[in-house]
Write a protein that binds this DNA or RNA. Structure first.
Lengths: 94, 94, 94, 94
DNA sequence: TCGTCTGGCTAACCGC
DNA sequence: GCGGTTAGCCAGACGA
């Protein structure tokens, strides 16, 4: 008769945390690793676009600055809306 | 006579770099911004998974360490394969 | 006659790194601690102003948001100037 | 006749909250921004000291640890003194 | 007092 | 190899 891993969680150390928890952990790791792979792929795509732009004579430094400024703009717009929400909320309290 | 934007790229400042170049530039910006949005979405997803794991009692710091170690491992494995390729290539030269 | 700490740097562990280095170290520590004290005093002053404002009926959350937005504004202005510098530099290369 | 901003707080939207409140608000903002500037200047000074120390061969990580430990110590000492005060006060009640 | 959350700091990554 | 940029960590402040 073989050892039943269901009836004795201490059969070996790999079972110390329980089969369920182990599977959950494996799932978490797998999901994160999957997402990070995709994220890296996108980062590589972005690099590629910059490389292509550079090959076409664009200054990547300027390009990055422009992108960065545009991002700041949109962030600020978002924050201004958040401020407006705050104002409206404050008025509601009056 | 009306200025012809085709024959004179200096008609106004917005045309100073040429309509083609401008469109190309806009395309580059748009592509990068699109990719960065997607990248950010993935980063948010990853944070979400960590948050969920934390809610289930996992220590995110340890979790991150595990992910990091596994990445190192795979990098090392990749390096070893590259080294093997190198050896095989060298053998081919004999 | 007592041991001369100048002639034997190993007399005790506190001399292991040399009197000069020790003094230098003490000076560094002292300067940093002094600066951090002043920094903390300012942080406390800021808290006080917020508390006073709150007592006068201002919503500190809104206040903080306003301050934050103004800071973003000035950062952005600085970055736009940096971008202009980049442009000018790029023109210089033509 | 020219509108008198003193007699009518609703002359324009910038006066909607009253000139006094507006000035008060401006003062609050100004004070906080001033203090934050000074705070930032100090933070920069601190960084500078660390940079200088690093240039002299000190390990900034260790340095920071030392500072941190000393701060803990002084906090603990302060707590013990507070405790002592408490005891003395209790004795006074006897 | 606890939990949440923002802001500052540190360490890693990428391009030059 | 260095400088700049970005993600993660942490402490400190606010609200419940």
């Amino acid at each position: 008769m073989v050892a039943d891993t269901q009836s004795n969680e201490s059969v070996d150390q790999s079972d110390a945390i329980g089969a369920v928890a182990r599977d959950q952990l494996k799932s978490i790791i797998a999901r994160i690793e999957r997402l990070e792979e995709e994220k890296k792929a996108l980062a590589d795509d972005i690099k590629e676009v910059y490389a292509e732009a550079k090959a076409n004579g664009y200054d990547t430094k300027v390009l990055r600055k422009v992108i960065s400024l545009r991002k700041q703009d949109s962030n600020e717009r978002a924050e201004q809306e958040a401020l407006l929400e705050l104002y409206l909320g404050a008025l509601g309290d009056l």
